[in-house]
Design a protein around this nucleic acid. Structure first.
Length: 293
DNA sequence: CGTATGCAAATAAGG
DNA sequence: TCCTTATTTGCATAC
C-alpha cells in the first residue's frame, strides 16, 4: 500500500538522522493537501560546508546535492525504505484496550493529546481539533531542521543551551529532540517552529563568518526564562507524602511551615501539593474504569 | 557521547 | 491569593 515518502537515513542505532528528499507525502487522497512549500529545502543557499551531510561525529551521512543524491556509504549505515511508516509513531503507553469484547471507547478523563507525528500521517481530523495548523509544513521543517543542525555540527544539547541564551523561550535537549521527532502536540510545535527557525538562521549566519563565531553564538549565557525544575530528594518526598496523607489541602500557613522544615521554596511546595492532588485524582479516575482486568 | 523517554515539576487559563 | 484542570516542558536516566 503506502509507498515510501522519502528515504530515511539512520545511524547504527537505528535512529533517524536525516532523510533524502524524494517525494512529498503521497498519502493524501485526491484532496491535494499539498503543501505550498517546495519539496526541496532551500537550505543549500549557503554552501558553508560542502553539500555533504555529516553527523556529529563528522561522518558523512548523505548529500544535499540537487539531482545527484548520491549517498556515501561509509561507516554510516543507510536504510532506505524498508520502513512501513514514514513517521514513527510513539508507542504511547496510554490505556491499552486489547479487549475486543467491549469496544467502549470511553474517553477516560483527558486522553493525551495526539502528537504531530501521529496526526500528520492521518488525512483529516475528526472533531475537536479545528487547528488551523499546517502539520505538513511543520513536519517538513522538523526534518529540515535536523539536517541543518547536523550540518552545522551541533547537538540537540547545544541547540537547547544556546536557545536558552537568546531571546524567546528556552528549551532543553529534550524539547529539541521531541520537536525533531514530532513527539509534541501541534500547538507546541507551532510555537516552537518560529523560535527554532529564527535561531537556526542566525546560527548559520555566524557559521558563515567562521566556525569560531558559531561556537561563540552557541555558547551564550544563562538568561533563564523558565524556573528550573526542582528535584526533590527521596527524603523530602517521603515527608511531603506523609503530610499529604494527613492533609491533602494544607493551609497557606501550613505550607509555609512545611517549606521551612524541608528547606524548599514555599511556592515549590505549594505546587507540589497541587500536582499531587491532580495526580491522585487522575489516577483514581483511571482505576475506576480500568478496575476490572 | 548524543539521543530518546518516563515521570512529574512548572505553567496557563478560568474560577 | 490560591484552587482546579489541562498542558507544556525538563530532569534524570535509559538506550
Amino acid at each position: 500500500m503506502a509507498g515510501i515518502t522519502s528515504q530515511i537515513i539512520t545511524n547504527a542505532q537505528g535512529q533517524v538522522i536525516g532523510t533524502l528528499p524524494l517525494l512529498v507525502n503521497p498519502a493524501s487522497l485526491g484532496g491535494g493537501a499539498a503543501t505550498p512549500t517546495l519539496p526541496l529545502h532551500g537550505l543549500q543557499v549557503q554552501a558553508v560546508t560542502p553539500q555533504l551531510l555529516f553527523n556529529a561525529q563528522g561522518q558523512i551521512v548523505g548529500t544535499l546535492g540537487n539531482g545527484s543524491a548520491a549517498v556515501a556509504t561509509s561507516a554510516a549505515s543507510l536504510v532506505s525504505s524498508a520502513t512501513p511508516s514514514p513517521v514513527v509513531i510513539a508507542p504511547q503507553p496510554s490505556v491499552l484496550k486489547t479487549s475486543p469484547t467491549l469496544s467502549s471507547a470511553v474517553p477516560i478523563a483527558c486522553g493525551d493529546a495526539a502528537k504531530v507525528g501521529q496526526l500528520v500521517s492521518k488525512p483529516q481530523q475528526g472533531a475537536g481539533g479545528e487547528d488551523g495548523i499546517n502539520l505538513e509544513e511543520i513536519r517538513e521543517f522538523a526534518k529540515n531542521f535536523k539536517i541543518r543542525r547536523l550540518s552545522l555540527g551541533l547537538t540537540q544539547t547545544q541547540v537547547g543551551q544556546a536557545l536558552t541564551a537568546t531571546e524567546g523561550p528556552a528549551y532543553s535537549q529534550s524539547a529539541i529532540c521531541r520537536f525533531e521527532k514530532l513527539d509534541i502536540t501541534p500547538k507546541s510545535a507551532q510555537k516552537l517552529k518560529p523560535v527554532l527557525e529564527k535561531w537556526l538562521a542566525e546560527a548559520e549566519h555566524w557559521n558563515q563568518k567562521g566556525q569560531q563565531n558559531l561556537m561563540e553564538f552557541v555558547g551564550g549565557e544563562p538568561s533563564k526564562k523558565r524556573k528550573r525544575r526542582t528535584s526533590f530528594t527521596p527524603q523530602a518526598i517521603e515527608v511531603l507524602n506523609s503530610y499529604f496523607k494527613k492533609n491533602a489541602l494544607p493551609t497557606g500557613q501550613e505550607i509555609t511551615e512545611i517549606a521551612r522544615e524541608l528547606n524548599y521554596d514555599r511556592e515549590v511546595v505549594r505546587v507540589w501539593f497541587c500536582n499531587r492532588r491532580q495526580t491522585l485524582k487522575n489516577t483514581s479516575k483511571i482505576n475506576v474504569f480500568q478496575a476490572q482486568q
